[in-house]
Each structure stands twice: as structure tokens, then as C-alpha cells.
């Protein structure tokens, strides 16, 4: 088999995600009363990019066959922190941004340390750390409020040259600066190896712990970038429990839609990004078809349920029943 066919087989999930997104987006745009214009693309990308950052974060952890159920709470915490710090003189704003991103990465690193060095199950451990992060967020913002530097916020949520959404460019920059170098590094390959088979990776002398730790930390950083952008969109910080939980849930949904295997070792953050954009578009489809917004949670739930059930088609390929049990 030629190289490109290997590459294509590896990226199949990602291409599926891109195809689903394009299909949904075309349906969305062709039924939108205002049609295709720069403002609609800007609004859609601003909403989609938030989830895309969180989904990228989740994808990184899922690739190592872990899970981070605190991701939505890191997102909420950094949002609350940014509403305090990212304001004032340009220097203060810059320091604020750095601190917010650092705190995001720190939260991720704590998750990583607890899971790897504490040897705890990621599900329970990250639910517990999520409670801690939410508590801190609530301490920072008992009631919604705060402010953010409007020049920076408008620059990052507006349009470049009148038609390119700045938030999409920011997403692209993050992909180029974080994901591409990571996936091509030794650590990135190690993360995939750990996800495929931790035992085999261990036996081959792959740096398991370092790979996992860096993955969790990067996930925290990406969730922090997401939280920062949320502040840019809303101009406030809010410790909303339901919204934090929803982002955790949606991040998992996006990862699944994006073709990242929940067993680990397969998929890419690019796929997760398109999964996130597709998930957002599906949610918005209801509006262009004039449904009652009350139906949106149910619709999103059903889409999620169908998306995860699709993976069951893999069962048809199984020849030996014992493979059911993994």
C-alpha cells in the first residue's frame, strides 16, 4: 500500500467530520433568511470557536484513552479569572492574558498529576477536580460581572479585512502553534501510542508519563484559551454550573462526531474542531427552521445519542464474539 493510502485511512474520521460539517453548514446557510454573508459567518464562527477550543482540549486527552470531565469547569474558571484580570493598560492586559492561560494550563497539569502520579481513574478524579475548579470560579464571581479590555475583545471577535472572522484566524493560529508541533513531536506520537495500548507503549520504552502529563496540561491550556474567548464574546465572567457541564458534555459529543476514538489512539484534534463546528451548526439548524428554542436541548441530546450509537456499526465487522469485550 502506498503512503498516502495509509495517511488517508488514518485521517478517515477527520474527513468524515469535515464532510458532516460542510453538509450541515450548507443546509444552514441555504435556509437562513439572510443568506450567505460575512456577518452570519462571523456569528457562526464566534459561537463555534468556543466549543472548538474545548473540543480540541478534550480530543487531546481522549487520544491517550483518558477523559477530562473537568474541562467545562476549567473553561468557566478561566472565564471568571479573565473578567478580573484582562483589563486596564495594555501591559496589564497582556499580563492578564498570560496569567489566565497559565492558570488554565495549571488546572490541566493538576488533573494530569492526579491521574498519572496519583494513579487515579480519570473519570472520578476529574469530576472531583472539576468541583474544585468550579468552587474557585464561584469564589471569583459569586454573581455575574466584571469587564474585559474591549479593544482586544472586539479585535478578536470581529472581522479581518471586512470578511474573515478574526476568531477563526485565532483558532487557526492555535492549531498551528499547539496542535501541529505537538502531533509531530515525540511526545505526540507517544500520546497516540499510549492510547493504542499502554502496555505495549510501556514495553517499548515510550515516555508514557511525560506524554500523558503534557497532554492533560495542553488540554487545560486550550480550555483556558476557550475561557478567554468566552470573556471576549460576553464581556463578563459568570460561574455558571449548568453551562460548564454543558461544555464538558458538548466537548465529548464533538470529539465523537469528529471521529476521535473514545478507546484512544485514533483521531485528531482537527477532526474534533470540525466535530464541534458541526455540532454547533446542528443546534442552530433548529432556529432557521423556526422551531421553538425549548426543543434545542432535546434535539442536541438526540443528535448526541445517534452519534454515539453510530459507533456500533463497527460491531458488524467483528468476526469473533470475544472481541466484544475489548
Amino acid at each position: 500500500m502506498k503512503d498516502w493510502r495509509f495517511w488517508f485511512a488514518e485521517q478517515r474520521g477527520t474527513f468524515m467530520a469535515i464532510a458532516i460539517f460542510l453538509m450541515m453548514f450548507v443546509i444552514y446557510i441555504s435556509n437562513h433568511p439572510a443568506g450567505f454573508n460575512a456577518n452570519i459567518v462571523q456569528t457562526a464562527s464566534n459561537k463555534g470557536v468556543l466549543l472548538a477550543f474545548v473540543a480540541m482540549a478534550q480530543a487531546l486527552v481522549v487520544i491517550t484513552s483518558g477523559i477530562d470531565l473537568s474541562i467545562g469547569m476549567i473553561f468557566t474558571l478561566t472565564n471568571c479569572l479573565a473578567s478580573w484580570l484582562v483589563t486596564g493598560s495594555p501591559l496589564q492586559v497582556a499580563i492578564g492574558v498570560v496569567v489566565v492561560l497559565f492558570v488554565g494550563a495549571l488546572c490541566g497539569a493538576i488533573n494530569g498529576a492526579v491521574v498519572i502520579y496519583g494513579r487515579l481513574q480519570p473519570i472520578v478524579a476529574t469530576i472531583a477536580t472539576g468541583a474544585i475548579y468550579y468552587g474557585i470560579a464561584l469564589a471569583l464571581r459569586p454573581t455575574p460581572g466584571g469587564t474585559v479590555d474591549e479593544i482586544l475583545a472586539d479585535a478578536l471577535t470581529g472581522k479581518l479585512f471586512g470578511f474573515i472572522p478574526a476568531s477563526l484566524v485565532a483558532l487557526l493560529v492555535v492549531v498551528l502553534v499547539v496542535w501541529i508541533p505537538f502531533s509531530r513531536s515525540v511526545t505526540g506520537r507517544a500520546a497516540y501510542a499510549v492510547g493504542s495500548s499502554e502496555q505495549a507503549a510501556f514495553m517499548s520504552g515510550v515516555p508514557i508519563k511525560r506524554a500523558k502529563f503534557i497532554t492533560y496540561t495542553l488540554a487545560g491550556l486550550l480550555a483556558g484559551i476557550g475561557g478567554l474567548f468566552l470573556t471576549f464574546f460576553t464581556y463578563t465572567g459568570e460561574a455558571a454550573y449548568a453551562s460548564g457541564n454543558a461544555y464538558t458534555l458538548f466537548s465529548i459529543a464533538s470529539v465523537v462526531l469528529g471521529g476521535v476514538s473514545l478507546m484512544g489512539g485514533r483521531g485528531s484534534a482537527i477532526g474534533a474542531i470540525f466535530g464541534a463546528l458541526a455540532f454547533r451548526t446542528i443546534g442552530d439548524l433548529l432556529f432557521v427552521f423556526d422551531f421553538d428554542p425549548l426543543w434545542q436541548p432535546l434535539f442536541q441530546g438526540v443528535v448526541l445519542l445517534l452519534a454515539v450509537s453510530l459507533s456500533a456499526f463497527g460491531l458488524l465487522r467483528i468476526r469473533n464474539r470475544l472481541e466484544w469485550f475489548g
Binding site: L249, A253, V302
Partner: peptide, 12 residues
């Protein structure tokens, strides 16, 4: 995953 999904459906 499936229990998160049914949770979302029940909420909906």
C-alpha cells in the same frame, strides 16, 4: 458516553 447522552435526552 451513552449515559451522558441519555442524560442530555432526559433533560431535553
Amino acid at each position: 458516553i451513552i449515559t451522558l447522552a441519555t442524560n442530555a435526552v432526559a433533560q431535553g
